[in-house]
Nucleic acid binder design. Structure first.
Length: 882
RNA sequence: GCGAGAGUGGCGGAAUCGGCAGACGCGGCGGACUUAAAAUCCGCUCCCGCUAUCGGGGUCCGGGUUCGAGUCCCGGCUCUCGCACCA
């Protein structure tokens, strides 16, 4: 080790301490004395982490390093860079730990934050720690509560008795999004639906804008597509159907939602969701037992059981009939049976559908299974086959029935009251809607799949609601002046078991009084979900210490919106949609000045790892496999194994910790490797065998500057690098300009891997011409490297004779003219195959190039006629011959 | 099923507008230095062919457009992610 002069373990802590001490990355903002409003701003943000007990894994630093490089680069380009970090620190794990140990979740959270912070600092990330925020800080959640109060005032927060996912093991309700296949996303515990009185946020009121304004942002198309799907806009019509006879109490009938009102003539039955309120009233006595049975079974199934790839279309007839208004009463087709079936969900549309088996796959399957009529009302275009076709026997007759849900022409769609035969889909839809409207039995309607947001949790470790419940059953907000509402101090954090939240235990805290009237009041027992704090943290970073407002208008006007937001795709829908929703509400209130919070979004890929698979397909942990001659075998059974790429998991024993990497190789190597693995958006396996490669690169840089024998304690460089005014070797100078150009260009496109490769090319070149490197070149290369390997760069900068950090030095420039080659090598092709090479002057005239090319491939051209000559300047010459 | 994306050496990955496929790194092979090893430096490394300044093949598969296709078009296969009875 003695000769390994480049020693990150001494350099890196030294510079981290220097940056701390000098507050190198403190960013002044509007209102600060040293703020310069003339400089352009750049706000680059990482999705802040939940400080879990297990610390950082190697996936975290991937995105953090990328944004850090951009932040450092933009500083060198003269921007005011806002690059903060904080903690999404309310959350279930800390609470569960508190339940187990009896210690306050605050303590565990503080411990985890300290660990995370020291890990982030050890990576040399240039956050402005003076802006650090923590969602569990009363000074922060005061404003989370304040925003909730604004939502409440706008009628966007309301209490509702809703069927919610209750998780017995976690002792709380969960949002739909937190339940996957009937099990909790966190902890994988079983969950069930129960009706409870909950706070809801009316995000559906913003559905249209959340959809439309996706046009305004630069996000990956895939994420936009996911949000669009989630919002799930569909346009169609609401149609009212009368129920035959006196079975319907109000005589109002019921409404359905359909996207295909043009298929109204094809309705052969109706379906109500089993929970539909009308079912009881319309069911005939002879069908009641069957209907009751069916409803009981359906009630035990969750939405997901009902939707889960369930090919079986169950349902029962209610005995009642509806009237199809497009047929006169005496037309038998006007009388359609009403069924209940669990393929219709109460939670979407009106909970009832008109079934058109000739035009809808699900209705078709149901009709086939239950022997219902199927009529064709849309003729597929010539040459197009129906989507489904089934031969069936019914009433002793064999018939072929078909289903077509594409665009076609209306057929069999005529009656004395309405005719749409021959119309194409769009025209037919418009005609039917107009007709329904004239008769007052329907109208155009837009529906969304998006539901209102279940906003309460039965937890301790979350923001208390600023709400008081009065004895008359009404509720009111806690006045803004009395915020924050802080949670009571507890020692026992366990749920009470009777579905009461843990806050109910603090009876002194719960019992309070109306601050205006003095009347007795009870505090809200629920707390907000973890999403609340992350809905607006990016705004608080702009002005984190403001005690009079969530943030100042000036700060928001200057810093907003976020120029670049980087995080994992797992937040594609929930966090990003919730935050956009709050932001739009704040926009409507005039609190923020931009319609969208995150102008540009970038999803980093996942850091994966290796694992092994045996012949049966079972996954084998890495410690049970070994390599021999490029093949892999099981350590014990000697079975051959296949190496696969898998997610990091404890069970596969393939999790890497950044701490180990930093200890062994240093933070700069870690940073470089994270960026060199591949494109940031790609998911790539973590391969520790590749670490020495980037480490060697940094060593080479070191040797370029520092004479052998210096152990990193003294400021020494090659004497030549302290001499001003040496003439640059033209080729090395050109190589440097090339590197500067490539790195600059690649940073603009966030292609960190190829930027690093460009620096490697330069360093390889410079190593070969070691003695040629001048001071001027050495200085420029250090600044080029600085965003990527800041510790090493700072150290070399100091050795080159500077006292201050290079953080605010200018980014190096390149000269286009220098990059122009005097001579270029062209490939000479015959019929598209490379047959020779020529070297010509870059500005050589075309005839001269062609002559040279002909000579180069003379043997290939012999006896052939040249039909065409193609010259691509700077690239190649191609002869087409016969 | 629907939507989005991907498929390039032994491995991670390059190839900016349709123009020399495989930059850079890992691994491998060879050499220099060394008593030796490590470290370092230099060279070679897509595959096949009598090891080569030559020829053939080659970017998931099959077609097409073009002087020229990893890149564009059509059809298919595989994988990843998201949604999934949303009427």
């Amino acid at each position: 080790m003695a000769r390994q002069n480049y020693d990150p373990s001494t350099i890196e802590p030294r510079w981290q301490a220097f940056w701390d001490e000098h507050q190198t990355f403190r960013t002044p903002g509007p209102g600060d004395r040293d703020f310069d409003p003339k400089k352009p701003k750049y706000y680059v943000l990482d999705m802040f982490p939940y400080p879990s007990g297990s610390g950082l894994h190697v996936g975290h630093p991937e995105g953090y390093t990328a944004t850090d490089i951009l932040a450092r680069w933009k500083r060198m380009q003269g921007y005011n860079v806002l690059h903060p970090m904080g903690w999404d620190a309310f959350g279930l794990p800390a609470e569960q730990h508190a339940i187990k140990t009896g210690t306050h979740p605050r303590e565990e959270t503080a411990k985890n934050i300290a660990r995370f912070k020291s890990q982030l600092k050890s990576l040399g990330l240039s956050y402005d720690w003076s802006r650090e925020i923590n969602t569990t800080d009363p000074g922060y959640y005061k404003w989370t509560q304040w925003i909730f109060a604004r939502l409440y005032e706008k009628g966007l927060a309301y209490l509702a008795e809703v069927p919610v996912w209750w998780c017995e093991a976690l002792g709380t309700v969960l949002a739909n999004e937190e339940v996957i296949d009937g099990r909790s996303e966190r902890g994988d515990h079983p969950c069930e639906k129960r009706p409870m009185r909950q706070w809801m946020l009316r995000i559906t009121a913003y559905a249209e804008r959340l959809l439309d304004d996706l046009e305004l942002v630069e996000w990956p198309e895939s994420i936009k597509a996911m949000q669009r799907t989630w919002i799930g806009k569909s346009e169609g019509a609401r149609i009212r159907f009368a129920v035959e006879g006196a079975r319907d109490p109000d005589g109002d009938g019921f409404e359905v939602f359909t996207t295909r009102p043009d298929t109204l003539f094809g309705v052969t039955y109706m379906v109500l969701a089993p929970e539909h309120p009308l079912v009881d009233a319309i069911t005939t006595d002879d069908r009641r037992a069957a209907v009751e049975d069916y409803r009981r079974v359906a009630a035990q199934k969750s939405d997901l059981d009902r939707t889960d790839l369930n090919k079986d279309k169950s349902g029962v007839f209610t005995g009642a009939y509806a009237q199809n208004p497009v047929f006169p009463d005496d037309d038998p087709r006007s009388r359609v049976p009403i069924w209940i079936a669990d393929y219709v969900l109460m939670s979407y549309g009106t909970g009832a559908i008109m079934a058109v088996p000739g035009g809808d796959d699900r209705d078709f399957d149901f009709a086939v299974q239950h022997g219902l009529d199927i009529v064709t009302v849309v003729q597929p275009p010539a040459g197009t086959a129906p989507d489904k076709s089934v031969e069936r026997e019914r009433n002793g007759v064999t018939e072929t029935v078909t289903c077509f849900h594409g665009e076609g022409t209306a057929v069999h769609s005529s009656s004395p009251v309405l005719t749409i035969d021959g119309l194409r889909k769009q025209d037919a839809i418009a005609r039917v809607i107009a007709w329904l409207q004239e008769r007052g039995i329907g109208e155009a309607q837009t529906n969304y799949r998006l539901r209102d947001w279940l906003f309460s949790r039965q937890r301790y470790w979350g923001e208390p609601f600023p709400v008081l419940h009065l004895e008359d059953g009404t509720h009111r907000l806690v006045p803004d002046a009395m915020l924050p509402v802080m949670p009571p101090e507890l020692t026992d954090f366990a749920p009470s078991g009777n579905m009461e939240p843990p806050l109910a235990k603090a009876t002194d805290w719960v019992q309070t009084s109306d601050p205006d009237t003095g009347a007795p009041a009870r505090r809200e027992l629920n707390t907000m979900p973890q999403w609340a704090g992350s809905c607006w943290y990016y705004l608080r970073f702009m002005d984190p210490h403001n005690e009079d407002a969530a943030f100042s208008k000036e700060a928001e006007r200057y810093w907003g919106p976020i120029d670049l937001y980087v995080g994992g795709a797992e937040h594609a829908v929930l966090h990003l949609l919730y935050a956009r929703f709050w932001h739009k509400v704040l926009f409507d209130l005039g609190v923020v000045s931009t319609k969208e919070p995150f102008q540009r979004l970038f999803n980093q890929g996942m850091v994966l790892s290796w694992a092994y698979k045996d012949a049966r397909g079972a996954l084998i942990p890495v410690d049970e496999a070994e390599e021999k001659d490029g093949k892999f075998f099981h350590v014990k059974t000697r079975e051959p194994l296949e190496r696969i790429v898998a997610k990091m998991s404890k069970s596969l024993k393939n999790v890497s910790s950044p701490d180990d990497i930093i200890e062994r190789w240093g933070a700069d190597t870690m940073r470089l490797y994270e960026m060199f693995m591949g494109p940031l958006e790609a998911s790539t396996p973590w391969n520790p065998d590749d670490l020495p490669g980037v480490h060697r690169f940094l060593q080479r840089v070191w040797r370029l500057y520092v004479p052998e024998g210096d152990v990193g304690e003294v400021a020494v460089v090659h004497p030549a690098l302290l001499r001003e005014g040496d003439a640059d070797d033209p080729e090395l100078e050109k190589a440097l300009h090339k590197a500067i150009q490539k790195v600059t260009h690649d940073l603009e496109r966030m292609q960190f891997n190829t930027a690093i490769s460009a620096m490697m090319v330069f360093v390889n070149e410079a190593t070969k011409k070691h003695d040629a490197l001048t001071r001027s070149q050495a200085l420029r290369f250090v600044t080029l490297l600085a965003p990527f390997a800041p510790h090493l760069a700072e150290d070399l900068w100091r050795r080159l004779g500077h006292d201050a950090s290079l953080t605010y030095e200018s980014w190096p420039t390149f000269d286009e003219k220098l990059l122009v080659e005097a001579e270029v090598e062209l490939a000479v092709q015959v019929l598209g195959k490379v047959r020779g090479k020529i070297v010509v002057a870059a500005d050589a005239a075309q005839p001269a190039i062609v002559d040279a090319a002909k000579q180069a491939v003379a043997t290939q051209l012999e006896g052939k006629t040249i039909v065409k000559e193609i010259v691509v300047p700077g690239r190649l010459v191609n002869f087409v011959v016969r």
